[in-house]
Design a protein around this nucleic acid. Structure first.
Length: 835
RNA sequence: GCGGCGGUGGCGGAACGGUAGACGCGGGGCCCUCAAAAGGCCUUGCCCGAGAGGGCGUGUGGGUUCGACUCCCACCCGCCGCACCA
């Protein structure tokens, strides 16, 4: 027998060439009329169902890392599985190519981002090919191409027209290092820039926002419609931060102004003893004006505004504040409450002003103690009226008003809100933590915002027929606190489409999250030059059936994309409410328990693994190492183990093909009805059943383990079975392994059967072979396993009891004692309960 | 503090309420070889025992059950998200 050696490099190059030449993974739109439905069985039946399998698009920076390998290994396994289940699968690829990293790289090296991005994209593309990922390359695009961002701009204008994109001055998060404004979501818990780690400052600037808050309620409630991991839904719910309560008006009589506050505890209104405003509140200085506290307030506000979020956000820090020298009226009892400014009140939540109830709020309590303010108990548990303050739990209303005293506080909330409403002093209200999305960036490498400022007409949207507003080439990307585009005078100066007069272009660009909020729509109709998409193409493919990506996008990208979809649905451009029907979030790949990073020197490059052991090994290992939704630690020994497995599979397949003579897809040897042949046949059908079930639940690790078991069994029985049975078992193993290790599987399958495995339907397990006619019956005494005996599958419960009682080691343990109960689980065990 | 997810051999991890530890790594022994690499075979939770077998074992303590890694209650530890959110 010839010496067969597994040569992944040769095998992988050969099959990749076939797939590229034949454009195997391309799917045409049915709306385009080419009708490559590829419905397999039953030509007259309904067309094959579609499946849109999508991995989050990569940011092309340098080379793909091991996390990319994991994402696309998962996605490709699903795509292949769906195809072989007979679905038409859309599995595209693109690049999220605008953004800060490319621009910062340009600043460092002087290489234009367009050039460095093109290099990175080429590297990504080459590696994705070398991994053998089944991509429809005909739909590829990069978000920095004018043919793409033209439509990003179009969507912006649609949002602008609908009032969902607007400009306002706001206290915004400013990164002093990157010299740009950031979205709230891009500032981490310590108040640092997500990208560069610099401490973020607050500045008052005119900025562009998208009105995502209009969608807070729908973004929250529609989470119930989608099959996403619970923890991702939870994160989104937390981020939206819905709370129910009331808005209540506190009037400052001296100035004649009503100040609304939001409270979740209207039941504690009678316990309010002071009133606090955020330092950013626009009225703070005005209120203090002319009072003895004016100077002190001014200083306090300045200090507070210059504090970092890190310093200010610390709940442990002692409460500080300054009196404003004014009072407001408590609407429920007419009391005058002293006003304060204090930094524990946040402008961005609620109304920027609060009623303070020190008896029942920990922060208000701390403030009241620090400033010697009265503390009035208005809620008490019935059994413990002297409960220690602050008390934030439930109880009954006390010392408030005869109408409410004695009422359980939960009930009182409704009654008090009703009363406020009647009196015109407040109303029920829902508040969200979610803020509008700040999308303007004072940077070069992004989608230009298609807006003009005309001296006479004011703010004017660029007419759609003039899109794209192309990003001009410039030499100096250095941020200077304004967009580098502002220096490109030729570009900035233009004419107003309304009056023909002079106009200046908006020089800010869009956050890259805007680009990635709709790319999944563009894939459906990627070459359309007349529209962002043909609605028929979206009807054909959307929503994405399976979305795959890192959990780090649980809030930002996934929330923005959902918002875009809903806004576009309201504008009549799409006909669905949610873009991603099912979501899978894969875990991180670590090395020695730590995140891979250049500084740690523990980076495993996918390219080096692919070069040394092959793409099939790299892909299979990353899926075999553990459940894909959990973090996995890379092990050099582990990857060798998977390589050994693929190698053994291929070698045995090659030997067997040679031994069996002409390749054929004939199911199995005619004489496979008994003995070792039957055993191996059964194992093959067991594996079909197991891998199919495991693929449906993303349990790739156990699916691969099942194929290993099948190979082990084939290997063990290789000389005891008919070669045709062995051929069938190995072809089955290759077929089942194809979604994970496509090249070696295609090759082995071809050697054994002469057929193309990807053109074969997914195998179906023969139910009759999943059942055995005899099995090992577990015999327990008092729940402990004492013996095992062979039992026939059709044995009656009584027969099983008899078998168990007769088992030698069972008899030793029963030993004359009384059997009080016999539990029979047919197919599994018998448990004798003895006394 | 609130919410989510976890805790199983030396390691990664398997286990519809029914044989705990599949599969792989690592370890030990052997075969092939002049030797090595590669490959193959056997073995491998811990303790007692020559063996048959027995005892103990899924973070801790209780509970439900003929039977619990799995379900319930209380707690401990770890990771992730949010957090002065009114």
């Amino acid at each position: 027998m010839a010496e067969h050696r597994y040569n992944p490099q040769e095998i992988e190059a050969r099959w990749q060439e076939v797939w590229a030449r034949e454009r195997t993974w391309e799917v045409a739109n049915e709306s385009a009329g080419d009708g490559r439905g590829e419905a397999r069985e039953g030509e007259e039946g309904p067309p094959a169902p579609k499946s849109y399998v999508l991995e989050m698009l990569p940011y092309p920076s340098g080379e793909p890392h091991i996390g990319h390998l994991k994402t696309y290994s998962v996605g490709d396994a699903i795509a292949h599985f769906h195809r072989r289940l007979g679905r038409r699968v859309l599995h595209p690829m693109g690049y999220d190519s605008f953004g800060l990293p490319a621009e910062n790289h340009a600043i460092r090296t002087g290489v234009h981002p367009r050039v460095s991005i093109a290099e990175s994209i080429e590297s990504f593309r080459r590696q994705f090919h070398s991994w053998g990922i089944s991509i429809d390359w005909s739909r590829e695009f990069a978000t920095s191409e004018p043919s793409y961002y033209r439509w990003t701009q179009w969507i912006f204008l649609e949002l602008f027209r609908a009032g969902l994109a607007y400009r306002k001055e706001a206290a915004v998060k400013w990164c002093p290092k990157d010299q740009t404004v950031l979205a709230n979501e891009q500032v981490d818990a310590e108040g640092r820039c997500e990208r560069c780690g610099a401490l973020v400052e607050v500045r008052q600037l005119e900025q562009w926002f998208l009105r995502i808050t209009d969608y807070a309620e729908r973004l929250l409630s529609d989470l119930d419609l989608i099959e996403w991991p619970e923890h991702v839904k939870t994160m989104q719910r937390n981020w939206i931060g819905r709370s129910e309560g009331a808005e209540v008006y506190f009037r400052c009589e001296e100035l004649g102004i009503d100040y609304p506050v939001f409270t979740t505890r209207p039941d504690t209104l009678f316990g309010a003893t002071f009133f606090v405003m955020a330092p950013e509140h626009p009225d703070v200085l005005r209120l203090a004006q002319g009072t003895e506290h004016e100077q002190e307030v001014r200083e306090y506000v300045n200090r507070a505004l210059n504090e970092t979020n890190e310093e200010r956000g610390n709940a442990e820090k002692p409460k500080t504040g300054v009196p404003l020298g004014r009072t407001v009226t408590n609407p429920v009892n007419g009391e005058q409450l002293p006003m304060y400014v204090a930094d524990y009140v946040l402008m961005e939540y609620g109304t920027g002003a609060i009623m303070a109830v020190p008896a029942h709020d920990e922060r208000d309590y701390a403030f009241a103690r620090a400033f010697g303010l009265p503390i009035r108990r208005v809620i008490a548990p019935p059994d413990d009226p002297e409960v220690e303050l602050p008390y934030t739990g439930d109880g009954v209303i006390v010392g408030s008003h005869p109408d409410f005293d004695g009422m359980p506080n939960r009930e009182a909330i409704g009654a008090i809100v009703e009363w406020l409403d009647r009196e015109g002093k407040g109303h029920a209200s829902v508040n969200y933590r979610l803020r509008d999305w700040l999308i303007s960036r004072q940077r070069y490498w992004g989608t230009p915002i298609p807006i003009l400022y005309c001296e006479s007409c004011g703010m004017v949207p660029v007419p759609v027929e003039q899109l794209p507003v192309e990003l001009p080439d410039i030499d100096d990307y250095q941020p200077k606190g304004r967009s580098p585009l502002a220096a490109a005078e030729d570009w900035v100066m233009t004419t107003c489409p309304q009056c023909g007069g002079q106009a200046r272009r908006e020089t800010d660009t869009m956050d890259t999250f805007v680009d990635s909020s709709w790319y999944y729509l563009r894939y459906c109709d990627a070459r359309n030059e007349h529209a962002a998409w043909d609605p028929a193409a979206l009807r054909e493919w959307m929503p994405v059936d399976q979305y795959i990506g890192g959990v780090e996008h649980a809030i930002l990208h996934l929330m923005y994309a959902r918002f875009f979809t809903k806004a576009l649905a309201d504008l009549g451009h799409v006909s669905f409410q949610e873009p991603f029907q099912a979501l899978f979030t894969q875990g991180m790949v670590t090395k020695d328990g730590a995140k891979m990073s250049k500084s740690r020197g523990n980076v495993i490059s996918p390219a080096s693994i692919v070069e040394r052991l092959g793409a099939d090994t790299a892909r299979s290992y990353i899926l075999f190492v553990g459940p894909p939704d959990q973090d996995a630690d890379w092990s050099d020994e582990g990857v060798e183990g998977v390589h050994r497995f693929l190698s053994r599979l291929w070698r045995l397949a090659a030997d067997t093909a040679e031994r069996a003579g002409s390749p054929t897809a004939e199911p199995a040897a005619a004489g496979a009805g008994e003995g070792a042949d039957l055993e191996l046949l059964r194992k093959a059908h067991w594996a079909i059943d197991k891998v199919s079930a495991d693929l449906r639940r993303f349990a790739f690790n156990t699916a691969i383990a099942a194929v290993m078991e099948l190979l082990n069994e084939g290997s063990r029985l290789r000389d005891s079975v008919d070669v045709r049975t062995l051929r069938f078992a190995l072809a089955t193993a290759a077929s089942l392994l194809f979604p994970f290790a496509p090249h070696v599987s295609a090759d082995a399958y071809d050697l054994l059967t002469g057929e193309r495995v990807w053109e074969q339907p997914w195998p179906e397990a023969d139910e009759t072979l999943l059942e055995r006619d005899s099995y090992e019956l577990v015999c327990q005494v008092n729940g402990k396993v004492r013996d095992r005996v062979q039992a026939s599958a059709d044995a009656s419960p009584q027969a099983l009891k008899d078998l168990c009682r007769a088992a030698p080691n069972v008899r030793a343990h029963v030993d004359g004692r009384e059997i009080v109960r016999e539990v029979v689980v047919p197919g599994k065990l018998v448990n004798l309960v003895v006394r």
